[in-house]
């Protein structure tokens, strides 16, 4: 039997008479890289916000590792090892790169509410933080104030911070958006590297990234699932091709 780490049943979200997500049954298999694609406004980010509990669903249930998490607070879901990123790079801009990663590591010390303790007590996390930064090629930036780094590096930092939580499942919202060619390659390699022993669900517009990175693809249009399968299967589906006419051209990805 296939092991699904994340499963949604009849997931629906309505905003004042407009249905953003309608009856989505998403199943993400443990250990795979799963892509969520679709034209603009298809509801991809809404699905992300729903499964990570940042938005309450109108109907349907969400199961993570077999447990119903539909009515959980978002921070609680995150502590289960189910961690998301955001469309706009999610860093703490005025903290240093090292401090950013330490925020991710800090919770396991159990001192996050200790306002009477010196922040020097956090220095014991520095080695671990440095190792995470080295893993995403940011070792030399440790003391830099995050806001001063180029965009692609910020996305790498975001991934390092997420990895600090040792999540079982990561959600990446358009990890290559707004990037130049070289940055894209770097991030794709990074995602491949961190996907070992992990499940990744990602929203991605760049179809060549999807084609060479993702094991399974779910296509959303107007809030509903249009197709699901491997890239080869999905890219031949006439309905999918039709949905993409006038926006991204599915076939362009092969060139």
């Amino acid at each position: 039997m296939t092991d699904f780490i994340l499963e949604t049943r009849g997931l629906t979200k309505e905003f004042k008479g407009f249905t953003a997500v309608s009856d989505v049954n998403l199943k993400v298999e443990r250990g795979t890289i799963h892509a969520l694609i679709g034209p603009n406004g298809a509801g991809k980010t809404t699905v992300f916000n729903l499964v990570t509990k940042f938005l309450p669903p109108t109907a349907g249930t969400i199961h993570f590792k077999g447990e119903d998490i539909t009515h959980e607070a978002p921070a609680v879901t995150a502590r289960r090892g189910f961690v998301r990123s955001f469309q706009i790079s999610a860093t703490f801009p005025h903290l240093t790169v090292m401090e950013n990663v330490r925020i991710g590591l800090q919770r396991k010390l159990g001192t996050e509410f200790h306002f009477w303790k010196s922040e020097k007590s956090l220095n014991k996390l520095n080695d671990e933080a440095m190792a995470l930064l080295e893993a995403v090629d940011l070792g030399s930036f440790a003391e830099t104030v995050t806001a001063e780094m180029p965009y692609g590096r910020k996305r790498a930092l975001e991934i390092a911070t997420t990895l600090a939580l040792e999540p079982d499942m990561m959600l990446l919202d358009e990890p290559t958006q707004g990037m130049g060619h070289e940055d894209i390659e770097r991030v794709v390699e990074l995602i491949r590297k961190v996907s070992a022993n992990r499940t990744i669900l990602m929203v991605e517009h760049n179809l060549s990234v999807v084609a060479n990175l993702c094991d399974r693809i779910t296509v959303l249009t107007r809030g509903s699932v249009l197709a699901e399968g491997t890239y080869a299967e999905v890219s031949k589906n006439p309905q999918v091709l039709e949905a993409y006419v006038g926006s991204d051209n599915m076939n362009d990805a092969h060139h």
């Binding site: 955001f86 999610a90 703490f92 801009p93 005025h94 925020i103 800090q106 996050e112 303790k117 956090l122």
Partner: peptide, 16 residues
């Protein structure tokens, strides 16, 4: 303090 670090993180980017 460790608490202050998280406070600053919340100020900088609450959803994160």
């Amino acid at each position: 303090s460790p608490f202050g670090q998280i406070l600053k993180a919340i100020r900088e980017n609450e959803p994160r």
